[in-house]
């Protein structure tokens, strides 16, 4: 009986000298002149491979894996708020206005692995009632978006226009949730101007790529 590995135990394995069979992703015969090699494409990008290439990993089942798959999500809320008391538009005469409503939206990163970027778009519409001489303005995130004055002799009812603003470009930690807050303000009130409705949208587009 042959012996191997310098012991007296019988050999239980032999080293094959025949070429190794290779499947998808591997080439070569395992010899010095034809080493077993991963079959790869040439790096086609102008950036540096060592700095920018993604990794390859082995999972618990012994399967090769790449970087996490890109994920995205979309979240939105809309609020239609009616004010039965027909409040008077604040007289605040500056570039910030007076906050009259806050809207929030909880936004969750669907990726448990990586930070996500979220782009947030908001829309606001306010209905004003303007007696003769009445004036009103509304603000999105402390930015005056709309001002109107009645220079005629009759009341103007439910004067409104819907404005939009992309106001958020934020990040969310892996699997985390942030609360976005939208400040809706008013100002430049005069002449008995009132408001009776504030409508808003908050739309969040979330990407982890």
């Amino acid at each position: 009986m042959s012996k191997c590995c310098g012991s007296n135990r019988p050999c239980t394995h032999v080293i094959s000298r025949s070429p190794l069979a290779t499947g998808c992703g591997l080439t070569g015969g395992g010899s010095a002149t034809s080493p077993l090699t991963a079959a790869v494409s040439a790096w086609p990008y102008p950036c540096d491979l060592d700095t920018h290439a993604g990794g390859v990993y082995c999972d618990t089942a012994g399967v090769l894996r790449s970087e996490p798959r890109p994920v995205y999500d979309y979240a939105q809320s809309s609020v239609n708020e009616v004010f039965p008391d027909n409040p008077v538009v604040p007289t605040t005469a500056n570039s910030d206005g007076t906050t009259v409503a806050l809207r929030t939206l909880d936004i969750t990163n669907p990726d448990p692995c990586r930070e996500a970027v979220v782009l947030i778009e908001v829309e606001v519409d306010v209905d004003f009632v303007l007696p003769p001489g009445g004036r009103a303005a509304y603000f999105i995130a402390r930015d005056e978006m709309y001002r109107v004055q009645n220079t005629g002799g009759s009341t103007m009812y439910d004067v409104h226009t819907q404005n939009t603003k992309v106001t958020g470009n934020r990040t969310i930690p892996p699997g985390g949730t942030i609360t976005f807050s939208l400040d809706i303000g008013m100002g430049w009130g005069a002449g008995g101007a009132t408001y009776n409705r504030v409508q808003s949208f908050v739309r969040a587009m979330i990407f982890a790529l």
Binding site: Y74, A75, Q76, S77, S78, V79, N80, E81, V82, F83, P84, D85, P87, L102, R103, T104, L105, D106, I107, T108, T179, V202
Partner: peptide
């Protein structure tokens, strides 16, 4: 989307439509 109603402390009435229930919070 889901819809819910809220009466605020000032007496206004909100109709809230959300992609995730409760995501718009409570004033």
């Amino acid at each position: 989307d889901t819809t819910r109603y809220v009466r605020t402390a000032s007496g206004s009435v909100m109709e809230i439509v959300e992609s995730d229930p409760g995501a718009a919070g409570m004033p």
